[in-house]
Amino acid sequence: MLPWARRTIVEEEQWLSSEEFSAMLGICQIVPGPNVTNLAVCVGSRFCGVTGAIAAVLGLSLGPICIVILLALLYNHFRDLESVRGILRGISAVGVGLIASTGFKMLKDEFHYPPSLLVVVVVMIAASFFHLGLGWVVLIASPVALFLAWHKAKR
């Protein structure tokens, strides 16, 4: 969705310059929550304040919500068909792979400063091995993350 957002906002409509868009995207990836609606808040409020933010979020999510509800209705009808079960199993296996690959793509950039991989390891151990709650994981890992980020930025 993000490449498409960049094309519309920067290239076609020219609402924002490319630098401005990248800066906003950077912020939206720092803060928690759904990246896409966070971006909508940034872009919307840049032009019309609170109203713009609300309009952007609604515009972005209403259509997809309706579509997904329609899909859910279909699912309720056909969920017991063997072929539908198979299709959903196939898609969820791909979906897991897609999520992992977003992580791996971002991981590639971190190899320029290998110590920061430590944060990734700490997070993974805390979350996947010790099964700590997400709040705890963030709390434990952020001091390490900030310390290493400070070292990386200092270079």
Partner: peptide, 10 residues
């Protein structure tokens, strides 16, 4: 940088 590494791990 800090947010990026946290996000990758998560």
């Amino acid at each position: 940088y800090a947010a990026a590494t946290l996000a990758i791990g998560l």
